[in-house]
Structure formats: structure tokens, C-alpha cells
Design a protein around this nucleic acid. Structure first.
Length: 268
DNA sequence: CGACCCCTGCGC
DNA sequence: GCGCAGGGGTCG
């Protein structure tokens, strides 16, 4: 569900827990927690007794950084939510983890489809080690390097988190539309100008979406329960068969990189 | 590289 | 009832 703008909005919504101490941590499903470096002591991995120093993010990966150097990674998958509330909020079906903090705060990790999860790490760098540069700050040179001389489509490359971290299906299509590049274009055929335009579009599309609080299509919610409004900015995603906002040509749709892809056959 | 799998819920 | 959904991993 969430791409970089949604995860960044979640990070912003988690600020109330920064500086708070975790009194009690509970894990309701063991298989939702994995350890990057064994062995695994659950209360320890869940940061019980620690104070939250800050929340980091690279791409779609969040990390709760605690005192003493422990790090707990959170990946929201398609339907994951982090909910800041009170300790007495009743547990619901798809809640997998719960933290009681001081100051009357509580945190819940909920994820109906269970594509997300928690990961215990020894450091932030360990948590983020397999990710490419964060998409909010992607440079044309890095994008070109990550794509290489590959025959795969530029869209598939944008979805590859080792090339750049944070772009998913919505913002890949939106960035390609703004840069006027066809999603099926092979990486090896991209010009330097196109890499420049695409890198710029990615940064712009993502930062605008953050300022709107992320896109709420179905179940995405900020930690305070509010919806994002960035879906108002979508120019091609979800608009297959409708007219292009630039030229009125009917937007096309096909599967590229295993995902539904929408583009304007004239502008792109 | 693409194909297929993981899982639940929703709208048609 | 079916197909689809913002995520990723593992195969061949």
C-alpha cells in the first residue's frame, strides 16, 4: 500500500513517541518479527525498556532507533498501519504488535494482509543495507548507474528498491508521465536528458505527495487515523481509459514489471 | 529477465 | 464468485 510519501507521513505521525520510554512490548504473531542477526530475544528486539531516540526512513523502510543502539525496522507492505493511541484501545483482528509507552501513549502495528513485518537490527545501516539511494534525493547520475545497460523496462527499474528506494506503482507511473517517458522504454535506450528529467520528476512528485500527507486509496491512514489527500494529484494512476489531462488522448493500460501500468500513448 | 507465490478485503 | 489491490521474495 504505502510508497515513500505515505511512509514519510507515517514517520511524521510517529513523532509523539520520540523521547518516550517503552514500558511494555507485546508481539501477537511471532512470524511478523524477524531478526537480521540472530539470536532473537523478543522483548529485547521489540525495544522493551528502551527510550525512542528517533525514527529513520530510507525508501519505504522505517526504523525506530532506541537508546543503547537497538533498532527495530518496520515495513508496512501493502496494508500495514502504525497507530498512535492510548493503552486501553481494544485489540482488533489484524493487530500483530503493541507497545505501551510512558506519558499514556500506545503504539499498534496492524497489517491485514501480512505482507509487512518487523525486523530487529543492530544498527540503522544494517537495516537499510540492501536499499539504493532514497528516491527523495535521487540524482540523474545515480539513476543511470542503477539502471545500467539493462534491457528491462524503465518502469521495472523504478520498482527495484536496489536501484532507488521508495518508488512504487503509483509514483512510478506519475513520474514517468511527468517526464514524458513511456514506461516500457528499455533502460539501455534512455538518454542522459531523459534520466535528468526522470530524476527531477521523481523528486517533485514525491515531495508534493508528502505535502498532501500521502495518497489514501483504500486503507492507508496516518498514525492519527487521518487520510492523506495526495490521490488528488494523480494524473495517470487509476485513470486508464480516461482522457490525458494534457492532450485528451485515451490513457492506455497494460502490465509492465508485473504491475498494472497506465500511460498516455501520445505524451509519453 | 518474467512467472509465480505470499495474504485479506473490497467492489463489481 | 472473480479479479484486483499501494508490498516483496524466490524460482528457473
Amino acid at each position: 500500500m504505502p510508497e515513500l510519501p505515505e511512509v514519510e507521513s507515517v514517520r511524521n505521525g510517529l513523532q509523539p513517541i520520540v523521547g518516550r520510554r517503552i514500558i511494555r512490548a507485546s508481539l501477537f504473531r511471532r512470524d511478523m518479527l524477524e531478526s537480521l542477526s540472530a539470536p532473537l530475544n523478543i522483548p529485547r528486539a521489540m525495544l522493551q525498556g528502551r527510550r525512542v531516540e528517533r525514527i529513520d526512513r530510507v525508501g519505504k523502510q522505517l526504523g525506530i532507533i532506541a537508546d543503547g543502539g537497538s533498532v527495530l525496522g518496520i515495513h508496512l507492505g501493502m496494508t500495514g498501519q502504525m497507530i498512535v493511541s492510548h493503552p486501553d484501545l481494544p485489540r482488533s483482528t489484524h493487530d500483530h504488535a503493541h507497545w505501551v509507552l510512558d506519558d499514556g501513549l500506545a503504539l499498534t502495528f496492524r497489517d491485514p494482509r501480512r505482507f509487512g513485518g518487523l525486523r530487529a537490527a543492530h544498527s540503522a545501516s544494517e537495516l537499510f543495507e540492501n536499499l539504493g539511494p532514497d528516491a527523495l534525493e535521487i540524482r540523474a547520475k545515480e539513476l543511470k548507474l542503477g539502471c545500467g545497460n539493462s534491457t528491462r523496462s524503465i518502469k521495472a527499474a523504478l520498482l527495484d528498491q536496489r536501484v532507488l528506494a521508495g518508488v512504487g506503482n503509483i509514483y512510478a507511473d506519475e513520474s514517468l508521465f511527468r517526464a514524458r517517458i513511456r514506461p516500457s522504454k528499455e533502460c539501455r535506450c534512455m538518454t542522459d536528458d531523459q534520466f535528468r528529467a526522470l530524476a527531477g520528476s521523481i523528486r517533485k512528485v514525491l515531495s508534493e505527495a508528502i505535502s498532501y500527507g500521502g495518497s489514501t486509496l483504500r486503507d492507508y491512514r496516518k498514525p492519527d487515523g487521518e487520510r492523506g489527500e495526495a490521490q488528488r494529484l494523480h494524473r495517470v494512476y487509476g485513470r486508464a481509459g480516461m482522457p490525458c489531462i494534457n492532450c485528451q488522448t485515451t490513457l492506455k493500460s497494460d502490465t509492465i514489471g508485473q504491475r498494472t501500468t497506465v500511460w498516455c500513448p501520445r505524451c509519453q
